[in-house]
Design a protein around this nucleic acid. Structure first.
Lengths: 236, 236
DNA sequence: GTCTTAATAGACCAAAGGGTTTAGACCGCT
DNA sequence: AGCGGTCTAAACCCTTTGGTCTATTAAGAC
């Protein structure tokens, strides 16, 4: 119940879902909660994004299984606008890869359409309060996927021997510059040594890394965690 | 209570904590639960790892703030043994970077020493059942950090213009091979074209990417999400 | 003091890479 | 039919890179 002097602002929500029935259902559900206002709805991502630009809602519930423009790209686009809008992904699939990608691009929550309405409300509440919400079941899936993607990388980098460890300090300096695309001449002047010295170092590097040219040396360095930087490949 | 015919196996646990008082406390706490057996304890990571190799426990509770060998390296070492041992990180700090790193290297849980004992027991239970457990509060911190590390990358890759988009299909094929360390001769034979044609393509690539040589072109490609692969830098 | 390793650097040669220009063939578009 | 873009390829020349061998110097190990 609201009285005069009750200044608590209702959180403003926009719903985006190509399934009109589901959209109405969710709207109905949320409207029963006095704390939230569904200020607009859309059945396509593009229309939804225009509405978001126009109304600057607090929260967006986004179905990510839509035809024309998929929900993930839409979320990415919304994040790029940087309006501070909190997006909750809504979908039927509890696919760990999907969840991972959604969280990666900035979703503040991810809930399944099959979940109880109380959970949806709770998720909105948490997200409005600046938290990130994942149902326990999805949280597990997310972490599995997360750890898997890093384990693969660990093996690449840690496994067996890392030939980079055989390099001397000076050789590492030289390689460091090579990984920045510097020429021999450039390396020479930056390290205050002659170009022939650079060549000597580079040749030693090639032998130690068992490669034939600069490009391969640079690739080896990058793929095997040069310095303390590790690199990971992940498809969005 | 156990009776004859009760075949349920107790989960076997090893505790590693350099603080002997805390270690005893936790041991006491767990022993009150009839489902778990603390089969060994250690006050240093190295001793702990030997015990793990010897006894193959189901779960390890590892304090990650220890002197000599830090707990994170210890976890990494345990994971590399690949014994299926589930490690729960135990610490006083709810530092999001720490949590991120612990989860990244394979911890199945992360709990704070200040947390209620019931939560510790619950975490063990979840982990024993193959799940991953993070207290809600830490979960939030983890996700913040996770999203932050990816947002930085997104900006690098998505921001402004990606010169790679100007490349023709053929040029992309050539560049793809260059990013694998293939020489011009190799590219020529793999694409069934002459070496001079390769050089023509490569020169066009250089101009479009505004670089001067193969190494720089390869680096540009790698850093700007060549194909649908994005690369991220993360220090372990 | 001797031995080893790392860093420095020169000479010389061969191979690969890079810049520029020109040009034919093919494709899609208007 | 003509225009523009792409793919193909050659000729010519110059620069950079890579391979090998040799040699001096300094630092550290034993």
């Amino acid at each position: 119940m609201r009285r005069i002097g009750d200044f608590k602002k209702k959180a403003r929500i926009i719903l985006i879902d190509d399934n009109f029935d589901h959209l109405s259902g969710v709207k109905e559900l949320i409207s029963m909660e006095s704390d939230y206002d569904v200020i607009a709805t859309a059945t396509s991502a593009n229309v939804g994004i225009s509405l978001i630009k126009k109304y600057r809602p607090d929260v967006v519930l986004m179905d990510i299984n839509m035809p024309e423009k998929d929900g993930l790209s839409a979320i990415q686009e919304i994040e790029k606008l940087d309006l501070g809008v909190k997006v909750i992904a809504l979908t039927g699939y509890d696919d760990s890869d999907l969840i991972f990608r959604a969280m990666k691009i900035g979703a503040k929550g991810y809930i399944l359409k099959t979940m109880a309405s109380a959970q949806l409300i709770y998720a909105i509440e948490e997200v409005v309060n600046g938290k990130i919400y994942l149902p326990a079941a999805l949280s597990s899936r997310f972490f599995e996927y997360f750890q898997k993607s890093f384990r693969e990388e660990m093996n690449e980098v840690t496994d067996e021997e890392n030939l980079l460890t055989y390099l001397t300090a000076r050789e590492e300096e030289v390689l460091e510059l090579l990984t920045q695309g510097v020429t021999y001449k450039g390396v020479a002047s930056q390290l205050f040594i002659s170009e022939t010295t650079v060549k000597t170092h580079v040749n030693n590097i090639f032998q130690k890394l068992q490669v034939n040219d600069r490009t391969q040396a640079v690739l080896y360095a990058l793929n095997n965690g040069f310095g303390n930087r590790k690199r990971m490949k992940v498809a969005i």
